[in-house]
């Protein structure tokens, strides 16, 4: 059923190594989401999954289809580009929202706004 076994051995080893490494990186990123104790600490965890995991798995996929189909297919570069560009934007917005809410609730462990009297953007 699987045509993956048609790969020559060197390509198969490279694809499997990239895939396993990418999956392990993603797993560690999600483990960070599980284990770290504070929201601002957890904010750092997904970037591992996106920068490490996505790039490695997409590279595995590029290599796999390039060898199987005998031509270079760079479709996955779009996914790499899109994910690496959009994740920081999401995380920045989320961080700002969390900061805003924490300040609104006057939590003590969050830095105050530098000049509260002049603000609103």
């Amino acid at each position: 059923m699987s045509h993956l076994t048609d790969l020559p051995p060197w390509a198969a080893i490279a694809v499997c190594a990239l895939l396993l490494l990418g999956a392990a990186t993603t797993l560690i990123g999600s483990l960070g989401l599980l284990r770290l104790s504070d929201f601002y600490e957890r904010l750092h965890a997904p970037t591992i999954a996106t920068s490490g995991g996505t790039i490695l798995i997409c590279l595995a996929s590029i290599l796999c289809f390039a060898v199987l189909q005998g031509r270079w297919v760079f479709h996955e570069l779009l996914i790499i580009f899109f994910v690496t560009v959009t994740t920081p934007v999401t995380l920045m917005l989320l961080g700002q929202a969390a900061l805003y809410r924490d300040r609104f609730e006057e939590r003590q462990d969050v830095p105050r706004k530098p000049r509260p009297a002049l603000d609103e953007e």
């Binding site: 750092h44 965890a45 970037t47 920081p88 920045m92 530098p114």
Partner: peptide
């Protein structure tokens, strides 16, 4: 901002224009 946030370990939270 994108570079700082994309690096695991640092996250950009707020820029004060003034």
């Amino acid at each position: 901002a994108c570079i700082v946030t994309a690096t695991p370990g640092t996250a950009w939270l707020e820029y004060d224009r003034r």
